[in-house]
């Protein structure tokens, strides 16, 4: 009766098989929901910036609030030097947010619940931030591994820890988002299964849990997008403003 709660994460091919050099690049349900999320973002921004009203309507207000929200987040964490990266962080935040939110709709697919997706984003951020750091500071960027004010005896140990923590950034960044999304959706599915299996008599308790969890998951969907974006800002800040 109760289907496998992990079944919602299966990726399956939609349409013809596309193979380039023996690599399967077929359009899947994951690709479909990426396209849907991106389209929703673009539509929102299109209608939000179409009419340049002095007194904004609702949709314009939403897109302006998102703009101000991300702009403030960047200037608070990474300062004015991070301004050129604003479009990237805005796109990243919007993409993660809308993938998470679209995933909350019943029968939809959560793109960010796949480790490969979050890992690619995290690795891209990690590599880009490292390159930016080396471009801005040259080899002085390596001083990020040597915190100031550390006793000389502890320095080798601290440096090793710093290097490990630096290298684990993409892991923590990607796993945090992926695990949160997967766990939340699995939990919703499990409680949904309880509702069905306990029937009309006993199903009310898990149903109320499901309702509460849906609210919680919407909060998590926003929060994880925010965390993903703000951690990107913090990593960017490390690369732009080298501490001494």
């Amino acid at each position: 009766m109760a289907s496998n709660p992990m079944q919602q994460f299966t990726v399956h091919r939609i349409g013809p098989e596309i193979k380039i050099a023996d690599i399967d690049l077929s359009f899947t349900n994951a690709s479909l929901f990426m396209v849907i999320s991106a389209s929703v973002i673009l539509l929102l921004l299109f209608f939000g910036s179409k009419e340049k009203k002095i007194i904004p309507d609702k949709i314009q207000l939403i897109s302006e609030m998102l703009y101000i929200f991300v702009a403030k987040m960047i200037s608070d964490t990474a300062g004015s030097k991070a301004k050129p990266y604003f479009p990237f962080i805005f796109s990243l935040f919007m993409f993660v947010l809308f993938c998470n939110m679209v995933g909350m709709l019943p029968y939809s697919f959560t793109v960010t619940s796949h480790i490969i997706v979050t890992l690619i984003m995290a690795l891209f951020i990690f590599i880009a931030v490292t390159i930016i750091g080396f471009i801005k500071h040259g080899f002085k960027y390596l001083s990020i591994f040597i915190p100031s004010g550390v006793p000389t005896i502890l320095l080798p140990l601290i440096t090793v820890i710093e290097i490990i923590s630096y290298l684990s950034r993409p892991v923590s960044l990607s796993v945090r988002l992926f695990a949160n999304m997967m766990a939340g959706h699995t939990m919703l599915k499990v409680f949904g299964g309880f509702v069905v299996s306990l029937g009309i008599l006993g199903g009310w308790l898990p149903l109320s849990f499901s309702v509460a969890l849906t609210g919680l998951e919407i909060l998590v969907a926003f929060l994880q997008a925010y965390v993903f974006a703000i951690l990107t800002c913090i990593y960017l800040n490390d690369a732009l403003n080298l501490h001494h």
């Binding site: 399967d24 690049l25 994951a30 793109v111 490969i116 997706v117």
Partner: peptide
């Protein structure tokens, strides 16, 4: 479908 997801992403 890792390659596909990466490509489409």
């Amino acid at each position: 479908y890792w390659a596909s997801q990466a490509f489409w992403l």
